[in-house]
Design a protein around this nucleic acid. Structure first.
Lengths: 211, 211
DNA sequence: GCTCGCAGATTGTGTAACAATCAATGGATG
DNA sequence: CATCCATTGATTGTTACACAATCTGCGAGC
């Protein structure tokens, strides 16, 4: 059955990164990981290389690996991809749009609201709920292919959310998503395009502000 | 200035894979690469792990790395992403649609036709031209963010083309793209959605045929 | 205060060795 | 003759050690 050490390590680190425990920018030192997990340095390096290929960590020669900090271009490219894909999902959704398919979206939005109100400081929970809502929207389109395609962007999207933490408080999070869900049927794809573009703009503007 | 050995190796292998010199399914043996490039096995392994993260090679425990063979689900997810993105590009394109922006598309299509007629056996050249045409369509939308997002899918798209080789001959390639370019302005995004879906279906059907 | 250079820390790469697993070969058996 | 199983050879997975290459921060000297 043999899951190799490199694979398990990569998957553990991936989880720690996506949960926000390892924040974007955090350095990942080989010796530290080596003694923490009791694995040889080469094993660590292989796992880091793999995560590098997945864009979850960035590797600078002779300076080491750190959790990826998405730069402005990364953010815009990622959001454009999501925008195109989620927009397509919404278009399909509005073509079928029976009430049962929308139930999942409202449930997910309620869950997000509850997370924001119950535990506004537990960002990991909020981010999971946030990702789940967007996932639900894509799912509601009823195309397994779109769901697959969206899943491929999910890891990086969560990385984006981890950076958005300091920009968007829980209240604003609720407000924006209530509006999104309310507008979905009326304004269609434009609603989600705007929603995603606003998020990207907010992060980029906030970063420009602390110059 | 120090480009590390792992990086150069990864980039050399990437090029060889995307040029089609290393066909999908080809095994990549560590010892062989080690003596071919005169590098230690660990260096090879690190590069392979990175390419694994980029999805260009698939690594099976204790059985080694091979150039990724996209399965049906991979193909559908990739095409759905491209479809959403290129569809978005076409929508933008038709909103501006001045003649100069279209010139690039026609040039690229002419180049593709020339490649198919001049050297129908030089698949690498045809694939470059093919990728360039789709790239030109996305470029014509005039949004650098969409271009960025599309670039991220390009490597895997070329991998898809490498597998499409045995399914689509040069003649059919010309026909489908002449139709696509002709329909772009009239039918808009639907034209490109159909174009991409047909390509995916053809590959999947052909594979089902040799069971 | 600034620059230079040195020293320590960290990463990059290689070699050697061995364990773990796979794959194919070949017999033993029905 | 076909089938199953075991052995063997090839390949990958992992480690330890060594050393080179490079970065980084700190202090000496100006």
């Amino acid at each position: 059955m043999a899951e190799t050490a490199v694979e398990t390590l990569a998957s553990v680190l991936r989880t720690r990164i996506l949960s926000g425990e390892l924040a974007p920018g955090t350095p990942l030192r080989e010796e530290a990981l080596s003694s923490e997990y009791e694995l040889g340095r080469h094993t660590i390096r292989a796992a880091l290389r793999q995560l590098g290929g997945e864009r979850l960590v960035s590797i600078q020669p002779y300076s080491g690996a750190r959790v990826t900090l998405l730069d402005d271009d990364d953010v815009r490219a990622l959001m454009q991809l999501r925008s195109a894909l989620e927009g397509e999902a919404v278009r399909l959704l509005n073509r079928r749009s029976d009430d049962t398919t929308l139930a999942g979206i409202h449930t997910a939005n309620d869950e997000l609201r509850r997370a924001c109100l119950d535990s506004p400081t537990d960002r990991a929970r909020i981010e999971r709920a946030h990702a789940a809502l967007h996932h639900a929207i894509v799912d509601a389109a009823g195309s397994p292919r779109i769901t697959d395609a969206h899943a491929r962007l999910e890891a990086e999207s969560i990385l984006f959310l981890a950076q958005l933490r300091h920009v968007l408080d829980a209240e604003e999070m609720i407000r924006q998503h209530d509006q999104l869900v309310g507008d979905l049927l009326i304004r269609g794809e434009d609603a989600i395009h705007e929603h995603l573009e606003r998020a990207a703009d907010q992060l980029i503007a906030a970063r420009a502000a602390d110059h």
